[in-house]
Design a protein around this nucleic acid. Sequence first.
DNA 1: ATGAAAGCGCTAACAG
DNA 2: CTGTTAGCGCTTTCAT
Lengths: 331, 331
Amino acid sequence: MATMEQVAKIANVSVATVSRVLNNPNSVSPDTRQRVQDVIKKLNYEPNLLGRSLRKTETNLILVLLHAIDNPFFSKIIRGIENIAHIYNYDVIVANNYGDRQLGEHYVDFLRSRLVDGVILLSSEFTAEELDRLTANYPVVQTIEYNPDSNAPAITIDYYQASCELMEHLISLGKHNIAFLNANDRPIISTDEKFRAYIDTLNKYQLPIITKSTEIATFGYFTAKDKTNELLKNHPTIDAIFACSDMLACGAIDACLANQLKVPEDVAVVGFDNIAYSEIFKPSITTISHNSFNLGLKSMEVMLQLINGEKLTNHHLILPHKLYIRQSTKQ
Amino acid sequence: MATMEQVAKIANVSVATVSRVLNNPNSVSPDTRQRVQDVIKKLNYEPNLLGRSLRKTETNLILVLLHAIDNPFFSKIIRGIENIAHIYNYDVIVANNYGDRQLGEHYVDFLRSRLVDGVILLSSEFTAEELDRLTANYPVVQTIEYNPDSNAPAITIDYYQASCELMEHLISLGKHNIAFLNANDRPIISTDEKFRAYIDTLNKYQLPIITKSTEIATFGYFTAKDKTNELLKNHPTIDAIFACSDMLACGAIDACLANQLKVPEDVAVVGFDNIAYSEIFKPSITTISHNSFNLGLKSMEVMLQLINGEKLTNHHLILPHKLYIRQSTKQ
DNA sequence: ATGAAAGCGCTAACAG
DNA sequence: CTGTTAGCGCTTTCAT
């Protein structure tokens, strides 16, 4: 591979001039510029980013750390991030940590080892102390999930308010025996907020609390189906289910149907996230949509502020959400 | 941030010794080693990967380039890749190029600019010339999709054979008027092979060819639904549909149902890829599954061979697939 | 076992 | 407008 020095030698200029042609072409006379560019093309020269980054102590790389890439709405968030990033000449790379905290720390070390300029966390394994220590030294923003005990910047939606809307919707349909179905494999703030809204709304209307507490379990359609079967056996009076995600709602609905219960007549079901399937599923699923693309845009905007050393006014940015009423609650 | 030099100064050793403590601890006497490690801990020192990589001309980073991360089976492939990568001390990062060739080239420049040691392409925008030029100089492997005109290494399944199995299955059910439904937004080898199998099998049984050619279009459920509506209008005798992906199959099935056609009695539908949803959809979808995790494992194994300069015996590695028969063809 | 020194490829003063 | 030079942080000979 050609280096700058080789280009310089053949073009009969110094390396500084080659560097200028690359980074500030106008500071070089047209003919030397042309000569250098010709040699660059001939040698197929490509600047070594490691050398450049080492020198400039910046890489123009943003790392997005997430649980696993198969979560459908991550995709749109990342598009939002990239959209802003590309404008400002940053590249976006993604890494999975599968909820593994050690692996998460390993990737976050990319910051300490100067391989990336900033990290956007769509993952949430870190303790408040870790986050605070990290954000004190490096540009880090949390998106969607966040640690409520940390001051680290976060872009998210109002999960409590959104969940209240779902609960009010169910109650407005005359549903009084509402169960709560969660299946997060670790404690996450969104589930806490959803559950808080569940409890508060039931108390507000003095309705029975069927689900007393959340539990840690694995995500997924089949788990949700099993749990709902159990639920229906233990609480035959259930007439609605608040599922923490659309995929769980799918499982819950299929369990109801398998038990000869009509959805939504006998049991209404709501989900969360508005994934593509929620519109395709039969029945289609009432759910909350966050504007993922905007979440991504905002996250990268805040990231740029951090990189540029600007002081943030709001550490928590709450973006709007939207309720979609579909067949799973209303035919 | 602490540098090696600061550690060296405080520990009263040379930078060389600090480096040794990090990379080859046994070559340092126990007490100096201990002293250095204490300072490292105290200063919270983290080696700068840019300096190290620049010096060693290797980064231990593998880039996976893909169309968009929301394709469900990409996730499993990446897990396979990571599985092998982590054993050999490589990290895996992911970038999306959304089928944009220019963006793809930009990311592939990470190789030329020495930011990554290898690239695994789950994307397929490159011409044979580009690929050949690239593979001549850098470790590159294609997974799933590949350019048939290039010698670049590829790990994939036998799309032709798999598609023949689907076709034979439909025909064994007595279906004779089979349409082909594709919706790839660019020419890809998998679609070519599927279509070739479609045509060959129809010819083998002297059945009518309803779909004469493939067309470039955008992926997706709704597109598939629209196209199927059209198809049913133009060819009322259709009794089966070969959809190039499970998501398309969903759209096709819903279009049939909306036209009062029973699936599979009136129209049988097959998909491809065995995404999670194909089992949940009503009716569940007959499809082909490739073992994505294994595809990932193999891809990374080949990548390591390339990095280590080993000569490959097979440039195209074909892994087994599996036919899943479900309700969309057989109740 | 340890240190001195060269150099990976680049950018940015500084000088002219 | 261009060249010289220092140095980003690290690893690795080559001495001792």
